[in-house]
Design a protein around this nucleic acid. Structure first.
Lengths: 271, 271
DNA sequence: TTGCTCCTCACGTCACGTGAGGTGGC
DNA sequence: TTGCTCCTCACGTCACGTGAGGTGGC
C-alpha cells in the first residue's frame, strides 16, 4: 500500500490523473482514509494502471477504456473495437497526409513567388490506392482530356456519395497507350475500404518530377510547359503523369492549387 | 449585402460559425443593424471567408488564422508558419501510424488466441527512415545479437535525449554479411529531421512475412521458429529480418509486443 | 515548528453544436 | 396572423493542467 504520490511515480503519471481516474471510477484506490480522504493504492494495482495507459495509448477515450477495463469483455468484442479504432486511425492518417500535401504545396508556391527558383522538384511518392474510374482520351491535349476527366469525376462523385464514402484529394492519372496519341485517363479519390461501383486501383510507388500550379485550369499550360522543358533537358521523355487537385473547391478556380507529377521510369538502380 | 443565413449558405458554413468568427473579430459583418443586431454581409466578404476556411483547413487554430488574415503578413513569415505546420503534421502522421501499427498487432494477437490461424501474414511495408546506429554481431543467434542490440539502443537513446528528439517505435534490422555467420545489426527509431551523432538510414520498401510475438524476449524463439518454418515451406531462405518493438515500456517484459518481419526478396515482378 | 504531501473545488483549454427563450420581418 | 429567420445567453464537449486555499503527517 502506497500513497498517491508514490503510486503516480511508479506508474509514470500525474497525481491529478490518478484523482481523475478515481473520479471516473476507472481506477479506485484500494483504500481511502475515511477521516482525511487520503488515497492508498495497492502496488498490484499497477497492472490495472498499465492496462489503462496502454488502452489510452491506443487512442481509446476514457469512457471506452472504462468499458474495456471492466472484466467480461469478450475477445470478439475487443476485436470489434480494435477494428473500428484501426479504421479511424487510417482515416486520420490519410486526412493528415492530405493536409500535409496541401501545406507543402503552399510552401512551394511561396518559394516560387519570392525567388526565381527551379520550381521543379523530384521526389518519391508512395503507392496510392484510389477509388477510381478509367476511360480513354483521343490524345494528351487538355482539350481532349479535360472533358473525359470531368465526366469521370462526376461519375465517381455520384458513386461515392451514394456510398457515403469520404473524399480527400481528387487525383487524375494519364497513361500513354500503344494506340498512338490516345491516353488512358484514370480519375478518383484516395480512400480506404471499398466503394461499390468503383474499382480500386493502386498507383505504383515511383519517382516523380513535380510542379505546383496556382490558378484556374485554363492557365495550367505554363506549368506543363515548364515540366516538359525540364524533362527534355534532363533526358526524360514525357510519358505518364498525374494531377493532384490539392485545393479545388467550388466553381471559382482562381485559387485552385494543382500539383503536376511526371512519373520518372525507375532507372533500375540498386533495388 | 446578404443576411447571415444566406451568407452561410454561400460560404458553406453554419450561422453559428459566422457568429463565432464575428465574436473573435475574424470576420466582422459589413453592417450590423443598431436596432435589432441583425448582421449583414457583403458578398465580397466571401473571399475573406474562403481564405479563413482554407487556413483553418490547413490546421491552423483560429488565433493563428486571425494573425494570418490581418494584412501585413510577409511571405517569409507565412513561410515560417507553414514550415512549422508541416513539421507538426509529419509528427502527427508518424504518431498515428505508430498507434495504428500497435492496434493492428493487437488485432492479430486476438486472432491468434481465438483461432488456430496461420499467424504469418505477408504485407508490403513502405520505406522507413530511422535515426540509427549499426554494429556487427558474431552470428544471428539471440545470444549474439541481444547484447549488440541493447548496446546500440542505449547509445541511440542517449544521443536522441540530448537532442530532445521524440522517439516512436524502436526498430532493429539484421542483415547477413558476406563474412559467413556474422550479421550487421542496425537499431534506431523512426523519425523526421536529423539527430546529431546518428546517421539516418532509410530501410527499403519491401514485401515482408510478419508475425506478432507477445511476452518477454526470452520466449520469442517460438515466433522465430514459426517464421523460419514458414520460410522453408514457401521456398524462401531466411535472410534479412526486422524487429518492431510495438509495446516495450519498462523492464517488465511480460506484456511486450514485438513484430518480427522477414524481408522477402522482390520476385522481380511487374515493376 | 517547518516543509512536504495530500485534499477539494473550480476555472481554463478549443471550436463550435445545441437547445432555451424571445423578437422582428415577409 | 403564421411560419421563418434572426438574436443573445449559456451549457456541454475531453482529459486533464493549474492554481487557490486549506489541512494532516513526519
Amino acid at each position: 500500500m502506497v500513497n498517491i504520490g508514490e503510486f503516480a511515480r511508479l506508474g509514470g503519471v500525474s497525481t491529478r490523473m490518478l484523482r481523475h481516474y478515481d473520479a471516473l471510477g476507472l481506477l479506485v484506490p484500494a483504500d481511502v482514509d475515511p477521516h482525511n480522504g487520503r488515497r492508498s493504492y495497492d502496488v498490484a494495482q499497477l497492472t490495472v494502471l498499465n492496462r489503462l495507459i496502454a488502452l489510452k495509448g491506443l487512442g481509446f477515450s476514457l469512457d471506452e477504456v472504462g468499458a474495456l477495463l471492466r472484466e467480461g469483455v469478450e475477445p470478439t468484442e475487443l476485436h470489434g473495437m480494435l477494428r473500428l479504432r484501426a479504421a479511424e486511425l487510417e482515416r486520420q492518417v490519410r486526412h493528415d497526409r492530405h493536409t500535409l500535401d496541401r501545406v507543402q504545396a503552399r510552401l512551394r508556391l511561396i518559394e516560387q513567388e519570392t525567388q526565381v527558383n527551379p520550381h521543379i522538384q523530384t521526389k518519391y511518392v508512395e503507392p496510392l490506392t484510389i477509388a477510381a474510374l478509367s476511360a480513354p482520351a483521343a490524345d494528351a491535349s487538355r482539350q481532349s482530356t479535360g472533358a473525359v476527366v470531368q465526366a469521370l469525376f462526376e461519375e465517381v462523385i455520384t458513386q461515392m456519395e451514394s456510398a457515403t464514402a469520404d473524399r480527400t484529394t481528387p487525383i487524375a492519372r494519364y497513361v500513354p497507350t500503344a494506340d498512338a496519341p490516345a491516353v488512358d485517363v484514370t480519375a478518383g479519390y484516395a480512400i480506404a475500404g471499398t466503394v461499390p461501383g468503383l474499382s480500386l486501383c493502386t498507383l505504383p510507388a515511383t519517382e516523380v518530377a513535380s510542379i505546383i500550379h496556382h490558378g484556374p485550369m485554363n492557365t495550367i499550360s505554363t506549368a506543363y510547359q515548364a515540366l516538359a522543358h525540364w524533362a527534355e533537358s534532363t533526358g526524360h521523355s514525357p510519358a505518364t503523369w498525374r494531377e493532384h487537385y490539392l485545393e479545388a473547391n467550388g466553381e471559382d478556380q482562381s485559387n485552385w492549387i494543382v500539383e503536376l507529377q511526371l512519373e520518372l521510369p525507375s532507372t533500375s538502380s540498386t533495388r
